[in-house]
Design a binder for these strands. Structure first.
Lengths: 213, 213
DNA sequence: CTTGGGTTGTGAATCTATTCACAAGCGGGC
DNA sequence: GCCCGCTTGTGAATAGATTCACAACCCAAG
């Protein structure tokens, strides 16, 4: 796998993730090979796009035949960094945190939640599966002790920026932010924002423009 | 407001949504005017980008002064379609559904959840606030009766595509899909996918590429 | 009234991403 | 061994988004 030095765009990575899911469906249905056209159909893109995306990372297909399903799954997992375990902390044990914690994807894909934090004394000490909820005061020591690499923020907007700073200072390299607040962090930190407001406003914008005609 | 006919890109709309949030923060802090630079700093983009985005929809600023905060909030709300109420249905009364239902943003912004569905007989009949959970068998009649315009899917991947079809046939024009499944729907339907797997894989990809150096 | 610092609005230039087109390669059939 | 249908891999062309540069404008101060 060439693993190129040049920058890979976010949309390419999102598509790789979609190809992986398509390939897993194909594997489950017993297919051994998949053409770029088939992958495109399932992932919602075009055949040339699939080929270009994959060719960025190597030459995985056989001309005339397509891509071998099982080996390509392995290659994509390697590219996406899914062949190892990631140590994840959950900040905020509210409803969103609970929803994420029970999501089976985490286990299946090796994202292991090793720490949960909240500032509500009622919640501190409770166990979710085999993880005890810790008070946010213990953030730094627990993050270091558990060697946390990814933090998921499911706290209100107000405390989010300060918590993100603390988490980064404690050595966490990536943040998935569900709080509707912008985080200003050093460039080496990977941040990904999921903003429900934005997603709904996208819908209302599109509906508003399409309906009055 | 010119409200142009040419296509507006999704990233532009996402930024408009971010500007709106930035402006609301500025309003709360008592500011009357905001420059493109100030908005860019808060929304995480550049000043020319802010000006270009806004100029797509009209001329909202005053040269030498910036943009008037309160009027621009009103203009952005109008552009994003937030000046009216939207009737929303929640499909799936699990943890994700519960998290969304309690999110105060919905009320604040006029997204009114008028129907909740599940297929679990234990849940059917329960009330969340003042909305009774209905069985999914009643989908079509309730959607029509409540004049639902937006559906939010928080169901497992397997039933998602079929439910999306039913919802669209019942006249719903927009879907926010939290299920990790691709929906193939007629082009007039607005679909927005939120995929936790993708978001996490984006992080693990970036971490994998940045760490080994 | 004029000057000057500051800011918008926008065409042009640049940069990035997607799509196209086709040579190269594979395997099955004869 | 040699076509032939099929599919990849990729440079070139196109389309799309962002950034730049600057004229037009606004207000305050003198």
């Amino acid at each position: 796998m060439p693993s190129p030095d040049r920058k890979i765009s976010e949309s390419t990575v999102r598509r790789l993730s979609a190809y992986l899911r398509s390939l897993e469906a194909l594997e489950a249905s017993g297919a051994e090979m998949a053409s770029s056209g088939e992958l495109a159909r399932r992932a919602g893109t075009t055949a040339p796009q699939v080929r270009k995306d994959l060719s960025t990372f190597g030459s995985f297909g056989k001309r005339g035949l397509g891509y071998p399903v099982v080996p390509l799954i392995g290659s994509l997992e390697a590219i996406l960094g899914l062949t190892r375990e990631w140590r994840v902390a959950l900040l905020g044990a509210g409803r969103v945190g609970a929803a994420l914690h029970t999501y089976p994807f985490f286990r299946e894909r090796g994202f292991r939640i090793v720490a949960i934090f909240d500032n509500d004394p009622e919640k501190v000490g409770l166990r979710w599966d085999d993880t005890t909820i810790r008070h946010i005061d213990e953030l730094e020591s627990v993050l270091a002790g558990e060697a946390v690499e990814i933090a998921i923020l499911t706290v209100p907007a107000a405390p989010a920026p300060a918590l993100a700073d603390r988490v980064v200072r404690a050595g966490v390299g990536a943040i998935l932010n569900f709080a509707p607040a912008r985080l200003e962090l050093p460039p080496h930190v990977v941040v990904n924002e999921v903003n429900l407001a934005m997603e709904l406003e996208l819908l209302s914008f599109a509906l508003t423009r399409s309906e009055p005609r």
